[in-house]
Amino acid sequence: MMAKNIGVAAQRLLVAFTAIALAAGCNAEARDQAKDAEREALPEVGSTPEDREGIGNTAGTDGANDRPDFKVTESDRLSLDMARQACRANDFKTFFQAYARSWLVRENYTAETVRFGEEGNTRDKSRRNYVDGQLFPIGILDNGWVTAETMRQFDADPEFNWRNSRYMELEFNTASDNRQRVDYQAGIFERNLDPPPPELEEGLGAMIEPIGPGGYLLFYPTDTCWELVQDASNPVPRR
Rank of each mutant, 00 (worst) to 15 (best):
A23F: 00
D81F: 10
W226S: 04
P137F: 02
A86L: 00
D132Q: 10
T94V: 08
N108L: 14
Q230Y: 04
N178Q: 02
M151A: 12
I55P: 00
I211R: 14
C87W: 04
C26F: 15
P195N: 08
R123C: 01
R128V: 01
P235W: 09
D51M: 03
E107H: 06
P237W: 09
M168Y: 05
L141G: 00
L193P: 04
P196M: 13
E169M: 08
D155N: 13
V236A: 12
Y99C: 05
M207Y: 12
E159V: 03
E38K: 15
A64K: 12
P137I: 00
S176V: 09
F95D: 09
N161V: 04
L200M: 09
Y99T: 04
L193Q: 10
R84Y: 02
W162A: 15
T174G: 08
D177I: 02
A3D: 14
R12A: 11
T94K: 11
D142C: 07
G212S: 07
L218C: 06
A186C: 00
R166Q: 13
P195S: 07
D223K: 13
K125G: 04
G144D: 14
T94G: 01
N173Y: 14
L193N: 04
A10P: 05
A156F: 02
G120L: 00
R106N: 07
S176W: 07
D124L: 00
P158D: 01
R115G: 00
R152M: 02
V8S: 11
D91Y: 07
E202D: 15
W162C: 14
A111K: 02
S102E: 08
T48W: 10
P198K: 10
R77M: 11
V182M: 05
